[in-house]
Design a protein around this nucleic acid. Structure first.
Length: 211
DNA sequence: GCGCCGATTGGCT
DNA sequence: GCCAATCGGCGCC
């Protein structure tokens, strides 16, 4: 079966009975949440199809003090309104007019901090992921969920999720097995506050959007 | 109102 | 490695 999970990452299945991460998990600074989200399992049940992946790369976006964040200066707009919502809410926005980026809101309401999901290790529904991504059933599944836009496409995530409480939505995040060493690096693709080590990766994972 | 730019991706030189 | 695709937000006229 081509949808067989990869390697050790069966935590999602074993923990299938586990409930979504609680709001309290997200009611902490985004850099803490970003690090601890590594290893969590994202399960999508959109379009009546189940797809799932394990988080291997995240980025933290702070509120007021982070010029790279959409929450910078607490400026509210139609796009970033969800960022001001409750911890554990989805914040999904469109980037470059064509791709979706999925975040989980952190800290109390009105704080406007979040964690961006940047890469997943594909676990379930790989055929569906390939179809959604327009990739042949051929090789290199490494590109399926390696990047914020790619993982959203693979899981079927769109603005429809925006501002929804994750735990009650069609895409839930479950606690996963512990991961290996975590490495912190600078964030990808930003020009402001580009020196802050707010990107977290499972060191050595082959599923990262970049090393 | 106008123009520029972005938490990206994929295709081509 | 370079660049187009594509569009809402934001700065500035």
């Amino acid at each position: 079966m081509t949808d067989a999970p990869h390697g050790a990452a069966r935590a999602g299945r074993r923990g299938a009975a586990t409930s979504p991460l609680p709001a309290a998990f997200f009611d902490r600074p985004p850099q803490v949440v970003a690090r601890e989200l590594l290893g969590a399992v994202v399960v999508s049940e959109l379009d009546g199809v189940r797809t799932a992946g394990r988080v291997v790369e995240t980025e933290a976006y702070l509120a007021l003090e982070d010029p790279a964040s959409h929450g910078h200066g607490a400026r509210r707009s139609a796009r970033n309104a969800a960022m001001f919502g409750a911890p554990g809410d989805w914040y999904v926005y469109r980037i470059y007019g064509m791709h979706w980026c999925a975040n989980l809101v952190c800290e109390p309401e009105e704080t406007a901090s979040a964690v961006l999901l940047r890469a997943l290790e594909p676990l379930e529904g790989l055929d569906t992921m390939r179809a959604r991504r327009g990739l042949a059933t051929g090789r290199d599944d490494r590109l399926l969920c390696a990047g914020p836009g790619r993982l959203c496409a693979a899981l079927g995530i769109t603005r429809a999720l925006d501002a929804q409480p994750m735990a009650a939505s069609a895409v839930r995040v479950l606690a996963g097995a512990p991961v290996g060493p975590v490495r912190a690096t600078t964030r990808v693709g930003i020009t402001k506050a580009a020196d802050l080590p707010l990107r977290f990766v499972v060191d050595g994972s082959r599923w990262l959007s970049r090393g």
